[in-house]
């Protein structure tokens, strides 16, 4: 069936999907309200009823930046543990020694980074 290109079922599924979306769009065109000339107030960004001022995409203080740096490093390390965990029965206690050394190398820097990141004066 794959050799013949798109199978028949997939064609029907795509047709039903497209037909549903087309129906919604057509009914929307007929019955939903439409404002040809929206006023500037209507299009302004929401700022709790105040007149909005300045750009929306401003510079922002990223005070928790150390956590992001730690995440970039340790999220990848956490992935390696899955390969070990999957084969734990086959590896046994002997195969755990490298992962133990790995964790002993990886965790003290994490503790030090946390110590620095949790200090309020560094934010």
């Amino acid at each position: 069936m794959v050799a013949q290109g798109i199978p028949e079922e997939t064609g029907y599924i795509l047709f039903l999907f497209a037909a549903t979306i087309a129906l919604v769009i057509v009914v929307r065109i007929v019955i939903s309200p439409k404002d040809p000339r929206p006023t500037p107030e209507k299009r302004a960004p929401f700022e709790s009823g105040q007149i909005s001022s300045g750009a929306g995409r401003t510079r922002f203080i990223i005070q928790y930046y150390p956590y992001i740096l730690m995440f970039v490093v340790y999220d990848v390390i956490a992935m390696f543990l899955f390969a070990w965990a999957l084969n734990l029965r086959a590896l046994g206690a002997a195969g755990t020694l490298p992962i133990l050394v790995f964790m002993l190398v990886a965790l003290p820097p994490l503790a030090y980074a946390l110590h620095l990141a949790n200090r309020r004066e560094n934010w």
Partner: peptide
């Protein structure tokens, strides 16, 4: 970020920090 408004921008940054 794409909404060009301040509340959505703060919300998006919070989602990023929360993920870590």
């Amino acid at each position: 970020w794409s909404a060009n408004s301040k509340f959505p921008f703060i919300g998006g940054l919070r989602a990023l920090f929360q993920q870590t």
